[in-house]
Write a protein that binds this DNA or RNA. Structure first.
Lengths: 145, 145
DNA sequence: TCTAATGTCTCTAGCAACTAGAGGTTCAAG
DNA sequence: CTTGAACCTCTAGTTGCTAGAGACATTAGA
């Protein structure tokens, strides 16, 4: 049985984060020692590793909750999990496209900086003047980047 | 003079967001009408447009605060603004690299989904088993993606 | 066996960057 | 003059944690 600290180091997830996951129901309530400290077995260890990997891949905790409930009932179709991953891929490609545009814009801004005074600095100017922007962006263009 | 609603539509920033920006000091306190409603001139309009563009480019509100304080004193060197933009570019490229790795991983997961039952679904498996992951990731690998 | 250090407990509050809603006031059009 | 949209302030919620206070548990060394 692992203490929360050992679980933390083994899974690469911080201690308060583990407690947080328990609080929101992503992890089951842990067993307790005689002195009320949390104790974990390998099942929770695996579950936590699953969560960490999913987080690293950009899944929200809600998506992870769905994936976990799927894997808790493994006899059904894979289609739902597949669906979640595909939605995730769409979101990732969306973010990628926006970030690439952003990279180009920043490169342009920096290239145009003449190292004079701010009065003629394009970094400021580009941000203040839409006409200089170089790419089209509209109001609904940045939900969370 | 614009009301907050007109400013909102013109600048493409939602009404509560404008009030929020005022509250945290990004926008100056607005003039008020006889009936206590906010009124804006073109100066605030420009400032708000600046903020929106900077947000769309991924600058944090803190970075924007810095940029605004720079542009409020335009007789100094451009270097500071340049510096902020460059730091931003580094962060953007970082996010890009991670997102590209993530895209590849998701593509691989989806390609491997055999459309069977979850018991042998790779989407679940890949997330639970580090060995199948295909790329190296360590614990300090995802500050905000 | 005692003690000191480290680990753990619960609880509250905070972060970014907003968004949503309640309950009330003001303004503009018909 | 009335109606309805737009505005006001205030509080609380969102996501995914992180930080700190103050108290209890455990463990390693003297």
């Amino acid at each position: 049985m692992l203490t929360i600290g050992k679980l933390s180091r083994t899974a690469g997830v911080k201690v308060p984060t583990i407690r947080y996951y328990e609080e929101i129901g992503l992890l089951p309530e842990a067993e307790r020692s005689a002195g009320n400290q949390r104790l974990y077995g390998t099942a929770t260890m695996d579950r936590l590793t699953f969560i960490r990997h999913a987080r690293e891949l950009g899944f929200t905790l809600e998506a992870i909750r769905d994936l976990l409930s799927l894997s808790d009932t493994p006899d059904q179709s894979c289609a739902a999990a597949d669906q979640i991953a595909k939605a995730q891929l769409v979101a990732v490609r969306d973010r990628l496209a926006r970030l690439r545009a952003l990279e180009i814009e920043l490169e342009r801004m920096i290239a145009q900086c003449a190292h004079g005074t701010i009065a003629d600095c394009r970094v400021i100017e580009v941000l203040g003047n839409h006409d200089l922007c170089g790419h089209a962006h509209n109001a609904s263009d940045h939900p969370s980047l």
